[in-house]
Design a protein around this nucleic acid. Structure first.
Length: 486
DNA sequence: AACGAGGAATCGT
DNA sequence: ACGATTCCTCGTT
């Protein structure tokens, strides 16, 4: 085995940035169920062929109380066995980043993905207590109330490459990614996001670990440009944002489309968002913001900041997220009806089996099972629809059909594993039976799950009237029965 | 070989 | 009790 190289993410996060992109990372309650289920992300140790990467935690700050209810009673054995040591070791299998045979998996991608998750996740139900604790340190539960201008103890941020230090460690090579420095760079982000831009544009990290170049513009430029490396991550963030927005929309009786808001609804949303992020309430909100939703959506971040120095950035960022979430939803709907058109719209390239680029790895794949049982139109919640009954945390006894709908709801992430054939009829196809089964097994904490068993469960649905075979029987093609679809 | 169908026992909640 | 899991045999693609 070649010598390994460990990448150590350090972060002492006492500050909390308030810039737009930080809002992605620090949104109060990003649903960590979106994230890999069997690994405490910041503490995961990845190993694969050169260079081998170890990501481990080095947080040393005080403990924060954390709800243990989110920690599964029995996480995957490999995870729990080493949880106490603050990191877990994933031995390098044939397919380094995936417990699941994925011949085209890309360790580089997944490594970077894990890094991205670190940046995008926020304190939420995670898998083991240690990782929760650590994530709380990365991303404080309270939204941006601390001073974003607080200088970081580290001042050497002139070059982002300085945040990546390689140091030999015995036979191993250990490189540190100092998140202190990285965070400082985030804190330094100016309205034009120069620091983030520089940070992301710096390719040292990529080159060092032989990563694919990063399409920076795709990240900054908005959803329509989002693709490639960021696609799954953005998708996850948007999935969360959409669910969150959903609940808020129901509460405030407003549209999911900010452009459709009246001025009064704008005020309601602003107040709600201020409260959500624990920002100081604004007395003369109506005077400050006379715009309706469409006009509000056109305001620049500077304008937000000018009107509300304390909270303008956060509000603007949150609005951006809402806009993206709504746009993404439209995109998904279009994809259901006219995939080709949607691909053109989003520049989204349908996953090609013959290509090796977008093959999922451990990170991507574990990130796939999305959300809670909030899949749209669950018959169980038929009358109340999605009124937000039992939300997060109830995913442990999710039904298989619900889980499948969850996967189907995120085609950008799961398109290679399962996809709609005819959404209006509830017909879908399992493209990668192994993968879907593994995901299901992971969700249910059944490591021995396979497609044979999963399909047996699906067949049980036949006589229950939950699913049926299509008229013209096709392999791996199933159909939801009416009440369970739509 | 992979998938489909369904019986039967068992498990977990 | 119920849904899911596990194991099984046999048939089909």
């Amino acid at each position: 085995m070649p010598h390994s190289c460990s990448t150590q993410f350090k972060l002492a996060a006492e500050q909390f940035p308030t810039d737009s992109y930080a809002a992605y990372a620090y949104a109060d309650n990003f649903d960590l169920s979106l994230l890999p289920e069997d690994s405490g992300i910041p503490t995961t140790v990845y190993q694969y062929n050169a260079p081998q990467i170890k990501i481990e935690s080095a947080w040393e700050i005080q403990e924060q109380p954390v709800s243990a209810s989110y920690a599964p009673a029995n996480p995957c054995s490999s995870a729990s066995s080493s949880a106490s040591s603050g990191h877990q070791l994933i031995p390098p299998p044939a397919y380094p980043h995936s417990a699941y045979p994925s011949p085209q998996s890309s360790p580089q991608q997944s490594e970077f993905a894990s890094f991205k998750y670190d940046c995008l996740s926020s304190p939420c139900p995670s898998l083991d207590a240690s990782s929760i604790k650590q994530e709380l340190h990365i991303l404080p539960p309270s939204p941006p109330e601390s001073n974003c201008e607080t200088p970081s103890p580290r001042s050497d941020t002139s070059s982002s490459s300085s945040s990546i230090k390689a140091e030999p460690l015995d036979a191993e090579l250990e490189s540190y990614i100092d998140l202190n420095t990285l965070q400082q760079q985030l804190l330094d982000i100016k309205p034009n996001h120069q620091a983030l831009r520089e940070c992301l544009e710096d390719t040292t990290f990529q080159r060092k670990h032989n990563l694919k170049p990063l399409a920076l513009e795709s990240f900054i430029g908005g959803l329509a440009e989002v693709r490639g490396d960021f696609e799954p991550v953005i998708s996850l963030a948007l999935e969360h944002a959409k669910r969150e927005a959903d609940a808020i929309c129901a509460k405030l009786q407003i549209s999911q489309d900010p452009n459709a808001w009246t001025a009064a609804q704008v005020h309601a949303w602003l107040r709600s968002t201020l409260a959500q992020f624990k920002l100081p309430p604004v007395d003369n909100l109506e005077l400050q913001f006379s715009e309706d939703g469409a006009a509000l959506a056109l305001l620049s971040e500077e304008e937000f900041q000018r009107r509300l120095p304390e909270s303008g950035s956060t509000l603007h960022a949150q609005l951006e997220i809402w806009k993206m979430a709504y746009a993404d939803q439209l995109g998904n709907e279009m994809e259901a009806t006219a995939p080709a058109a949607n691909d053109m719209l989003w520049g989204y390239q349908a996953p090609n089996v013959e290509q090796d680029e977008s093959e999922d790895d451990e990170d991507m794949e574990s990130a796939v099972p999305l959300a809670t049982a909030t899949a749209p139109g669950t018959p169980n919640s038929a009358p109340a629809k999605r009124s937000g009954g039992a939300r997060n945390g109830g995913s442990s006894h999710i039904h298989l059909w619900q889980f499948l709908k969850e996967l189907l709801a995120a085609p950008q992430v799961n398109g290679t594993a399962i996809r709609w054939i005819d959404r209006s009829k509830g017909i879908f196809k399992i493209e990668d039976s192994v993968r879907v089964a593994k995901l299901w097994g992971r969700r249910k904490n059944r490591p021995a799950m396979n497609y044979d068993k999963l399909s047996r469960s699906i067949r049980q649905y036949y006589k229950k009237g939950i699913m049926k075979k299509t008229e013209r029987s096709q392999r791996l093609v199933y159909q939801f029965c009416q009440p369970y679809h739509q």
